[in-house]
Design a protein around this nucleic acid. Sequence first.
DNA 1: TCTTGGATTATAATAATTCTCGTTTAAGAA
DNA 2: TTCTTAAACGAGAATTATTATAATCCAAGA
Lengths: 143, 143
Amino acid sequence: MASAHEQFRDLAWKCGLAATHQRQIIYEAVTATPGHHSVEAVFAEVRGRTPSISLATVYKNLRLFVEHGLLREVSPHSSMLLVEGNLEPHHHLICTRCKAVQDLDAADFVNFKKLARRAPRGFDLSRPLVEVFGLCRRCSAKT
Amino acid sequence: MASAHEQFRDLAWKCGLAATHQRQIIYEAVTATPGHHSVEAVFAEVRGRTPSISLATVYKNLRLFVEHGLLREVSPHSSMLLVEGNLEPHHHLICTRCKAVQDLDAADFVNFKKLARRAPRGFDLSRPLVEVFGLCRRCSAKT
DNA sequence: TCTTGGATTATAATAATTCTCGTTTAAGAA
DNA sequence: TTCTTAAACGAGAATTATTATAATCCAAGA
């Protein structure tokens, strides 16, 4: 069984990335525990092991790992405030790359009964908003 | 038939908000055209009618309108970068208020065939990510 | 070992958003 | 209508998250 260290070196090699010590511990900080990790949290954890590490390094490598598919980004949407006046129940289709948003008026692709069963008790889904992420044609063409 | 002006005064009154000129034109800038509006776009439009208006006023009132349900926010998620190491296909349940994220491991509430039919041609849904927004128990209790 | 291009660091810069506070205004009361 | 007052506005400063820059540093192949 390969060590975590060796596993990462292997992954990095497959992506053509140098397997530096910093990347190693950033990757491990995210994958060691399940759930969702903020940059601050990763930075705090990583600094415990390598106090000289820079926040910019954490940012850069998290983005790099996401680009190469080693990590996933939670909610890969535009970081700016967007509003809409359409209050009719409808949903959104968002391009992960260019962040363009399109409306999906028919919600028949979501089974809200099943969804409600999956949600934890007390979670209010009375006015649900569903957003689906993918790559728009233009961005998937570029690759 | 009430004018747009009167309609807004009525809406504002129902929410207990003062119907100021600035609010009027901000609201109209968003609702006059369908689709998704950035703060910059709203500001630019609104400044054409009332050059003295402040960007802070636009921000403040857009947030206010969203809080009161007069407008919807597109992607009401945490504005900070979050990553996860779990690469297994799974989805997210996000609290609109506190931005907490939970995993939804079973995707059986989404009919991907129907979804693909709804999406525009060429939109790449080969690795779909679905995020569902609502209010977690704690936040819906506070109201 | 040596070389070299990519990686890291500290710091500066940027961009989006929010806060502060003095001024103005909406809207109910007189 | 005028008065009163809490709320709203405007200008610019402040804050926060993130990215760019430029000088070292190091991983990895020759």
